[in-house]
Design a binder for these strands. Structure first.
Lengths: 147, 147
DNA sequence: TATTTTTGCATCGTGAACGATATAAACATG
DNA sequence: CATGTTTATATCGTTCACGATGCAAAAATA
């Protein structure tokens, strides 16, 4: 079969692409009530761990470029989750800080991870198989992210 | 740690989302010369396996909705890879067929899967760990796609 | 110090994803 | 046959991703 490798069922990337889409989709029932999207949730995860970060630090943690993150932060600023202030020491930087609303959302989001685990567990039978994904994904990410 | 589960490093979905983005990105050096995007490549994979499909069949195979696939096919029609004809038996359908250009691209794409395996192998040391992803991803996709 | 390079952020354009909605054809049911 | 429902596709609006480009500040180098 000369074209065997071109079949969809032999494509790892298609599986990743689909699994990522569907998993992000599984967050919708939990994020919609909060009025945020999945990428916005990721930004909040970063800022809940450490507040007052410049744009580039957020981008690095999410492995995205600033041309993706800047508009994302602008939308989040418009919806009152954070503010962006000019840096004092380095005036090129924009320091991103949570507002009260952004900080308080952590309380409401607290149970999302376990809700998601539960709903996936319910649909899949076991979650153990998913744990095996973590080291392989980490290795793949590390390999593909080095420049 | 009340918020331990909200840390980025504990998020499976973030890993999937990042791994998918980076893997799709790894296709760029191979798809750019062909003038196609990754989702367009996926459509071609489907049509190379079976030509003359209605939009809904392509959407089903890619697990996407028609509101994503229709504009994708329109762009591909505009770039001369395929054409969309009204269905004979069911006039609601649009039957998608490859053009000569679309068919011939298979030859040029033939080596992409092995090129990608090779470049990932080079960056990661081994590809075996990636094989372990397949069954777990399939189970996850199956669980999340059932309605 | 003057000049070059790098860095941090922003803007623009294009192509996805996807929810919501529309429309016509096919199908089912009374 | 009439009417209601489902199906196949398309359109619109919003939000991401991301390549290309621009600009000003900071850092490095001459």
């Amino acid at each position: 079969m000369e074209y065997e490798q071109l079949k969809l069922k032999n494509q790892l990337c298609f599986r990743l692409y689909t699994a990522a889409r569907l998993t992000v989709g599984a967050y919708h029932p939990h994020l919609d009530p909060l009025g945020i999207t999945y990428p916005q949730y990721l930004v909040l995860l970063v800022l809940w761990e450490q507040d007052n970060l410049p744009v580039c630090d957020i981008a690095k943690r999410l492995m995205l470029d600033t041309n993706t993150v800047t508009p994302l932060l602008q939308r989040m600023e418009k919806s009152g989750l954070l503010k962006r202030a000019k840096g004092k020491t380095d005036t090129r930087q924009r320091i991103v800080s949570l507002t009260g609303k952004g900080r308080e959302m952590r309380e409401q989001a607290k149970h999302i991870p376990e809700c998601l685990s539960a709903s996936i567990l319910e649909k899949m039978g076991s979650v153990e198989e998913l744990a095996t994904l973590v080291p392989a994904l980490d290795k793949l990410i590390e390999g593909l992210s080095e420049r």
